[in-house]
Simulated assay, not measured.
Amino acid sequence: MAGSLLLLYVHGLPKVFHFSEELTRIEDPFGMGPYFSLIPAIIAEVICPLFIILGFGTRIACLPIIGVLLVAMLFVHPGWSIAEGQFGWLLLIIFTTLAITGPGKWCIGAGKQREWRHGIDQ
């Protein structure tokens, strides 16, 4: 959850609150235009962290985040040293681990997930 809060606060909310300004400065590594580069970033940095914080669809919510982080680290900032890109690489490690392991039993949605799984098993 801490990784989601950091991603939301540091990257996601500024993109939403300063949308027009972000359109003028967002990198466009694949030539799709700023709008089609900014919207996936907002989904990955605002919507997905909220799902993870709430404990719903955690593994699936990690996938867009991982995708945006990989694009940022490999295509937008390929020349960054480990020191310059450490925040991005750490987030990539956190969300990849979360995608593999799942949210755990302490997440908010854990009770619903257990109920759903037990209903299937019966």
Results as ranks from 00 to 15, higher is better:
120 I>E: 14
91 L>C: 10
116 W>T: 15
106 W>T: 13
36 F>L: 15
18 H>S: 14
35 Y>I: 15
75 F>W: 13
41 A>P: 06
12 G>V: 06
102 G>S: 08
31 G>F: 11
54 L>T: 01
98 L>A: 03
4 S>V: 04
63 L>K: 01
78 P>T: 08
102 G>T: 04
87 F>Q: 06
43 I>T: 08
85 G>I: 07
5 L>K: 00
41 A>D: 10
54 L>Y: 11
68 V>S: 09
6 L>F: 15
37 S>G: 07
92 L>D: 06
19 F>I: 09
26 I>Y: 08
72 A>F: 09
16 V>G: 05
75 F>I: 01
86 Q>C: 11
59 R>A: 05
60 I>C: 05
68 V>K: 00
122 Q>M: 11
16 V>R: 00
103 P>S: 11
31 G>K: 04
20 S>I: 07
121 D>Q: 13
84 E>M: 11
86 Q>W: 14
118 H>S: 13
18 H>I: 00
49 P>M: 03
43 I>L: 15
101 T>Y: 13
62 C>K: 02
68 V>A: 12
82 I>Y: 14
38 L>P: 02
17 F>K: 12
40 P>Y: 02
11 H>Q: 10
41 A>H: 09
50 L>I: 15
106 W>Y: 14
76 V>A: 06
4 S>L: 04
104 G>T: 09
96 T>K: 00
12 G>Y: 10
107 C>G: 03
3 G>T: 04
78 P>L: 08
98 L>T: 04
85 G>W: 10
92 L>G: 03
108 I>R: 09
98 L>P: 08
63 L>R: 05
93 I>F: 14
90 L>F: 15
122 Q>D: 14
19 F>C: 09
29 P>I: 09
97 T>G: 15
20 S>Y: 12
62 C>I: 05
56 F>C: 11
14 P>T: 03
45 E>T: 12
112 K>I: 15
65 I>D: 03
41 A>W: 06
57 G>C: 02
63 L>Y: 15
117 R>V: 14
78 P>I: 06
86 Q>L: 13
38 L>C: 07
52 I>Y: 14
93 I>C: 10
13 L>E: 01
54 L>D: 00
7 L>A: 10
91 L>Q: 10
51 F>D: 00
22 E>G: 01
29 P>S: 10
13 L>P: 07
97 T>L: 14
105 K>L: 11
116 W>C: 10
69 L>P: 05
48 C>L: 04
117 R>C: 09
44 A>F: 02
